[in-house]
Design a protein around this nucleic acid. Structure first.
Lengths: 248, 248
DNA sequence: CAGTGGTCTAGACCACATT
DNA sequence: ATGTGGTCTAGACCACTGG
């Protein structure tokens, strides 16, 4: 504040507010500190609460703030660097990966986008493994892994196991095969109800959707759709040794 | 509409609306088609315009809709697959890449995050190259490339050239060196004023920020910060031949 | 010019976490 | 019970696009 502005093209209030708050966060607040509540902040800046909230939303999207209903708004720590492909050319569920198997089910109806990537025909049976990824005590990602049942021997016996054991059984079946390669896409999405619960967020929260296709014997053998919390995560790629600096 | 709901856990109106609209988009609208205006839609669903807008925002975030002030809301085409690293192990500006050099300037003040990655000391002179990426006639990304001036011979003569020529001069200087490797992070951000203009969006629009570090002779030689339109882009990674399917 | 989406207001009530 | 952020309303005006 205090800088006289020429106002050639009037800036929206919420955008200006975002900038002011962002600078205040840099200089006057420590990580984890609780901000004044929204009604108080709105009054202090002389704007409606809705306008103030628009600015806070921006800052939350940028990972600067964390808001929790019933609690308050706190200054967020820097985003966590999450390696998307820690060990290249391994199947999901390989020893030492950061994912925790939760459950596995079988179905014949998969999302159209997944069926297209897997190159399955309508009616083909597919195993779905649900996994979650935890870093530093916080859940950062939820994943659905789709594997054609053709690739999972003994599918019938699997049903009698506990949920995590069922998931591991499917993952173990993959390790037996040779992995030709994998490719990936990253896009922005919004958390579905189930993912939101798992990520400790509200439905619609912004997530980074990482879709990985695993190829074996020249054909797609599995598709993983992982949703990472966009507010708290920075995805890292690249040579394993070089990545350390960026992951900071 | 018309479905009686049990309302076990009351769903927010805007979220339900998002679902209803999403299904309507799948079944009743074609790509490019113009939706009724917001006041009309709000009235039709019996909600306030703000609530309707909240649902539209979600759908725009997911790349289903495109809204333009003064024009209307249209059904968006599927997201474009954009290869982030088409040719591995090449410098930015290598022959055949998809970026158009726009300008280059020199400065001694770079963002703290960039200085940390580049391992430059305060006061070190750095060249900044601005480039843009266009796919299918639409701008999809804007990039700032930071190169320590130490690596750019003849920095003084450069000033007399045209803007794009200055940019190319810096890029050409890079090609001379050996590239050891590169690593990358992807995170969610919001478009700054300048990027927003370049991407034909409003300030604050969601973007995928791709930060690439180029290593030469064991030291970071350049850092590229590219902001992709999150609503229209799907970033693709991986083996060049395998990526074709996902990029669809 | 009329019509669109974008911004902003001043309220109200709800869901949730903490005390 | 209190206080927080989340949802929702019914208006108003602004900025931009197009004919």
């Amino acid at each position: 504040m205090g800088t006289t502005q020429l106002e050639t093209a009037p800036e929206p209030k919420y955008w200006h507010l975002r900038t002011v708050l962002s600078e205040a966060l840099d200089s006057e607040f420590a990580v984890g500190e609780i901000l004044p509540n929204e009604r108080e902040l709105a009054a202090r800046f002389g704007v409606a609460r809705a306008t103030l909230r628009q600015a806070l939303e921006q800052l939350e999207l940028e990972g600067r703030l964390q808001r929790r209903r019933g609690v308050g708004t706190t200054v967020a720590p820097p985003r966590v660097g999450v390696a998307v492909d820690p060990a290249r050319h391994t199947w999901p569920g390989a020893p030492g990966d950061d994912w925790q198997p939760q459950d596995a089910t079988a179905t014949e109806t998969v999302p159209a986008a997944v069926a297209r990537i897997l190159e399955t025909a309508p009616g083909d049976r597919v195993h779905i493994v649900r996994r979650s990824r935890v870093t530093g005590g916080q859940p950062v990602a939820a994943e659905l892994l789709y594997v054609p049942s053709v690739l999972v021997p003994g599918s019938t016996a699997v049903a009698s196991l506990s949920a995590p054991a069922r998931a591991r059984a499917v993952l173990n079946a993959l390790q037996e095969r040779e992995l030709d390669g994998q490719d990936r896409t990253v896009e922005l999405g919004s958390a579905r109800a189930e993912d939101a619960r798992q990520l400790d967020r509200l439905p619609g929260a912004p997530v980074l959707v990482v879709t990985t296709r695993y190829v074996s014997a020249g054909r797609p053998a599995a598709v993983a759709v992982a949703t990472y919390r966009a507010d708290t995560c920075r995805l890292t790629f690249g040579e394993s040794d070089a990545v350390a600096v960026l992951a900071g």
